[in-house]
């Protein structure tokens, strides 16, 4: 009796098996001395070259920089996670609640535009706006008699800049999914609430927000799965020597050590490590979410 449902999922599952699971045989290079010439299977295992099986993991953990970069990754990621969850939700609520419908539509269209700017461009804009010696903001500050603030090359500010720009870039775009969820709420619920004499805030509090709960938790879990990533492309572009002690993250570190020099084994090993940890985090978050009856599975 379920066969039509199973039939439906066949194409999707084949995709996951072929393009996602089949390549996972490549994870073995985390335990190999990978050589491009020999290929994945023929490259020698680490112990065949007289090294410990955990050589690449050790390489990561013995780096003098590792505690710093792990801390940086977590701080930046958690900051971004909050910035990409709460403000878009508030913005989506504001858009759906306002009585200026036409205006809201225009604003909404504008708000997702930053999503289309690459980080190179955003960095360029930041340099123009926030630069220390001739940035627009600092020119204003100086005109008002203040001291220029080195937003982009001071280790105290850089994390804020990373989180802030990521908020700016994703605000409108992330709010789309909340708006879609709001649009999906059964309006008869609101009508019933109005009849019961509920005010606006109570409707938001008792109808809109609970209905967004499921999507919110789901997004949260997927984001938690990426908490050890931190946003390579952005950080790599914003990184400079004056801020690297607070802005270097795991992925940018691996890049300078590994991919830049094609150390695929090290890259894979660190990736595997991150995946195992993320897996634990996702399982944990999901178990927590289950208490509110909105888990992923």
């Amino acid at each position: 009796m379920y066969w039509p449902l199973y039939l439906m999922i066949i194409p999707g599952m084949i995709f996951f098996l072929v393009y996602k699971y089949a390549p996972m045989f490549g994870i073995q290079i985390a335990f190999k001395n990978f050589s491009l010439k020999k290929g994945i299977s023929a490259s020698p295992w680490l112990w065949e070259d007289g090294k410990a099986w955990f050589y690449w993991f050790q390489r990561f953990f013995r780096s003098p920089a590792n505690t710093q970069i792990i801390a940086n990754t977590l701080i930046i990621s958690i900051g971004k996670l909050i910035a990409q969850m709460i403000p878009p939700l508030i913005f989506a609520l504001a858009i759906s609640e306002t009585c200026l419908k036409r205006y809201a539509r225009v604003i909404q269209t504008i708000s997702y535009l930053p999503h289309f700017l690459s980080w190179v461009i955003i960095f360029g804009i930041c340099a123009t706006m926030l630069g220390e010696s001739s940035g627009v903001v600092n020119n204003l500050i100086r005109k008002m008699g203040g001291e220029a603030i080195p937003f982009l090359n001071n280790k105290a500010y850089i994390r804020g800049v990373l989180i802030g720009t990521s908020l700016w870039q994703s605000l409108g775009w992330s709010s789309i999914v909340f708006l879609a969820a709001i649009a999906g709420i059964d309006t008869s619920m609101y009508e019933a609430a109005t009849i019961d004499g509920c005010g606006r805030f109570r409707k938001i509090w008792y109808i809109t927000l609970p209905n967004l709960g499921r999507i919110f938790v789901v997004l949260l879990i997927t984001k938690v799965g990426h908490i050890l990533d931190g946003g390579f492309e952005q950080v790599y572009i914003f990184l400079n020597d004056r801020v690297s002690s607070t802005a270097q993250i795991i992925d940018t570190w691996v890049y300078t050590q590994g991919l830049g020099k094609q150390q695929y084994s090290l890259t894979t090993a660190v990736g595997l490590l991150k995946s195992v940890l993320s897996c634990g985090l996702v399982l944990g978050t999901n178990a927590l979410a289950r208490k509110w009856d909105s888990s992923l599975w």
């Binding site: 340099a127 010696s133 001739s134 090359n153 004056r242």
Partner: peptide, 18 residues
């Protein structure tokens, strides 16, 4: 000195007479 030269190139500022 132009501290921004550590993050972005200062050539444009020179050309602009800053």
């Amino acid at each position: 000195v132009d501290n921004d030269a550590l993050t972005t190139t200062g050539t444009d500022k020179f050309i602009a007479g800053q």
